[in-house]
Design a protein around this nucleic acid. Structure first.
Lengths: 273, 273
DNA sequence: TTATAAACTTGATATTTATCAATTTAATCA
DNA sequence: TGATTAAATTGATAAATATCAAGTTTATAA
């Protein structure tokens, strides 16, 4: 959304100056409008001055290394974040000292929306690999949304999307077998890669089996057995984190999702800013 | 939020006219500021003219009888709703023709936030008893939120709260035993009644055991057995839908919630408009 | 590079909860 | 009101998944 990763590291923070043409050109290079996530990230109706305004409130973050935290549980809420590259998991501590993985976040996806209500982060966010994010200070975003109706609308849409997605996951956790959960999970990841222009049939999972199991409310052993079963049945190839989906239709069958549903989801989905 | 139930039935819709003092007085009687849910419902900083503006966009709905639908799956999204009295359940159809209960909604709580993203309702809402709601046309609300920063903020807070709550439920569904789920459910209902000024130790459940089981991802029989167990242990008294909580601490223990957490939740909670 | 730890897989067993079946109790309607 | 239906409870059994234990592969660091 803001700058590319490389630029992030090389350049020092700077404010754009409208007056200076040269600076403007440089700035443009690394601004939202040049970002590869542009069409994912922005309400399509935003452009020109408005885009620049949005661009101006977005801050750079130094890339996170694997296992670095973007924020911790109980940390003060100041910003929401957009994944630029890499991936993160969010998780909360449970009473018995365990952790509960609440989500995985791929490029173009948002983090921190659950913290607005209480002003503090109810979960922690940890990078699963080298990851860079754009930071969007929430106060500024609110002010800007006050000015730009389409931005306000987009914000509300995104939060609504998140609520909807969570409800789908609740259904998964409440009603589906281990098999169906893992299948739905893989299809979800596949779809999200597809939306970002990557292959939907072949990809790398950045999270461990443990994280997947935790997220799906299963034991690691069960997840492992399901991976094995899918492979035996020839539905997928899985070499550790490298996944190839051979029979998407079979997976949809197992997950209890019909193709139609998923396509609609694909078209409508914009879990992004 | 808008008018009282009785007024709803007796009067025909009318627009308030600023010029006419008499009409204004009549209107005031049934307006937001007179509503018993006022302090639950509104950002405390809204008053005077702003309150009147909000009041103006809210529409009346004829009370729903038990099993009436407020909206259906796939129905066009136009408004969000605030429960005024009574209660509703929301549910989605699943692939295998079953239904999945996604939530229960008590007075002061919102419905429809999950529909903003796609512009259509992903779930249906059905009254569990005689129920009246205030309808808030979303376009108008968006326009008004554009004008009133505190309203925009409140909206975002509410949606964030919903996301947070859903994540708590995901934890429940993914990681907790049947016992813990039912206990947490009863504590949640208890807390919500408390926030509305009703007893937190004695209340009526408007939903069936079937709905509870469905919501918690359990079989009816299991829920029934857990009710029996809680009674045998003296933690609750349950006479059908009439529940008395005898030992809240034991329930928190079982649910895996510590008192501290719940108190914080109680203070902060405003799942309302 | 080797040593050590972490992640993953597989098998055997235990536990939880669903399912099936039957009964009881309450609610609804003619 | 009584008849009929729906909701709730209880018991017996089956199925799914967790847990425990051990071994294997991969990753990490000295």
């Amino acid at each position: 959304m803001s700058e590319t990763e490389l630029d992030l590291e090389v350049k020092t923070p700077r404010r754009k100056t409208r007056q200076n043409k040269i600076v403007d050109i440089l700035a443009t290079k690394v601004a939202c409008k040049e970002c590869s996530l542009h069409q994912l990230c922005l309400p399509s109706s935003i452009d020109g001055n408005d885009l620049e305004k949005l661009d101006n409130i977005i801050e750079r973050k130094r890339p996170l290394k694997r296992n670095d935290h973007l924020f911790q549980v109980g940390g003060q809420f100041t910003s929401i974040y957009v994944v630029r590259s890499g991936s993160l998991k969010t998780y909360s501590p449970t009473v018995d000292g365990q952790e509960q993985v609440t989500g995985f976040h791929l490029p173009g996806e948002l983090l921190g929306l659950d913290a607005i209500g209480k002003g503090m982060h109810p979960c922690a966010a940890k990078a699963l690999e080298t990851t860079s994010v754009c930071e969007v200070p929430f106060e500024n975003l609110e002010l800007l949304a006050q000015e730009l109706p389409t931005l306000q609308h987009q914000l509300l849409r995104l939060m609504s999307k998140e609520i909807f997605d969570d409800q789908e996951l609740m259904l998964l956790l409440g009603k589906k077998t281990a098999e169906a959960r893992l299948s739905a999970f893989l299809l979800s990841i596949s779809l999200r890669f597809k939306q970002r222009g990557f292959s939907s049939t072949e990809f790398y999972l950045s999270m461990s089996r443990n994280d997947i199991a935790n997220y799906l409310g299963l034991a690691v052993e069960t997840v492992s057995r399901m991976f094995t079963r899918f492979q035996e049945d020839g539905i997928i190839d899985a070499e550790r984190k490298h996944i190839v989906i051979n029979d998407r239709e079979a997976m949809q069958q197992i997950a209890g999702i019909n193709e139609c549903c998923e396509d609609i989801a694909a078209e409508e989905t914009q879990k992004t800013l």
